[in-house]
Design a protein around this nucleic acid. Structure first.
Lengths: 205, 205
DNA sequence: CACCAACCTGGTAGTAACTATCACTGAGGT
DNA sequence: ACCTCAGTGATAGTTACTACCAGGTTGGTG
């Protein structure tokens, strides 16, 4: 009885997946995204091109795939607020950012962000992923989604929040991660929505 | 003496361009984007595949190409406001929307929007175009772009505005253009930024 | 221990979006 | 009436991606 469904298999699978992605990001960063073929990535990772496609449905996903979405949704649902929408969503995003940048993946994360920002194909698909995340957030907010007009307002608020977040993330990456991401996000929210967010370590107001 | 640089040539060129795009949108809508090849589009438009690529650099541009960007930028620059950023940008976006939906392209515009929303590849590239538009807007705002912190705030405000706009446009298209787009945009802005926008026909603040 | 089942992997085409290059035609100006 | 060159077309190539099929490894069962 496998406590974890075939542990060793999943282990090896996760390993090759990580190897492929690491090599992909390295090659893309060194030689450029367009100049690097999937075949090159496969070669560097020591697998066949077929295997790459088994793990990553598209070349873009070699850079973009991760699991941050689930995290954000949970935070949203966990904030059981009566606060205004943008504040509720914004708070959850700031907390999520703190968690993500706290990890030890920083350099890898930054490399991926740099690619995302500078490569049109990656930028486009990433923005579409954010759009999908928006739907997840809207679902997590959950406010009686029956009324289409209410749903529309939630969509508007969520989209604006994610846009501000994106702006902050871009700025953070352009600064090579020197600033504090949660602070930057708070600044972006203040610029967009007015001075309701204080800083990441909230003081007054 | 060409008052207009070789009038007939430009005329024919614009004609074929329009024909190609019209046939493309028609075929994509009828048979699906992925199921329609560029070759099909060329055949329907009575040209060779090469000619299609001459006029539209990518298949996605067959749906996405237009010139609305310039219009918005001009409106922004024309609004010489001391108003807050989001209000200034939002007002320009609402005016632009009124102009665009006032034209006689409505059915064509709606068809293109429906494709954009339902087709992942188009949605992604469209979002990236909006991101490019954001840079245009930021440039048009122009507020002493020297200070990086100020520039960052402008970016945040512009991105949030465009996100709200996008939400409204999606809603409008999903409603088959029955509502009034400027009103929808105003509603989206109110939901995201608070009740500062009144309706589309702004009188009092 | 032998066997089976389910993955994971690899190979071989095949499709379709582009790209580079060359040749042809016809419009615009001299 | 010539010359130039933008617009168009055909050919051949590259690359992302997709079936389809075959072999090998892992994990559990008689």
């Amino acid at each position: 009885m496998p406590d974890q469904r075939s542990t060793l298999r999943a282990q090896r699978r996760a390993d090759t997946q990580r190897t492929i992605q690491a090599q992909a990001v390295r090659l893309f960063s060194e030689r450029g995204y367009d100049a690097t073929t999937v075949h090159h990535v496969a070669e560097a990772a020591g697998v066949s091109p077929m295997t790459v496609y088994r793990h990553f449905p598209t070349k873009e996903d070699l850079v973009l795939l991760d699991e941050r979405g689930q995290l954000v949704a949970e935070r949203i649902a966990a904030a059981p607020a009566a606060q205004p929408l943008v504040r509720r969503i914004g708070g959850a995003l700031i907390e999520s950012a703190a968690t993500l940048t706290g990890g030890n993946h920083r350099e890898f994360l930054l490399a991926r962000l740099r690619l995302m920002i500078s490569t049109p194909a990656l930028r486009a698909k990433h923005l579409d992923n954010q759009y999908a995340l928006q739907q997840v957030i809207v679902a997590a907010v959950g406010d009686d989604a029956t009324d289409p007009d209410t749903a529309f307002r939630v969509q508007a608020a969520a989209s604006a929040c994610l846009a501000a977040l994106h702006t902050a993330v871009v700025r953070w990456a352009e600064d090579d991660g020197r600033g504090e991401l949660p602070e930057l996000i708070a600044t972006a929210f203040n610029a967009a929505f007015g001075d309701d967010f204080g800083s990441a370590h909230p003081k007054a107001r």
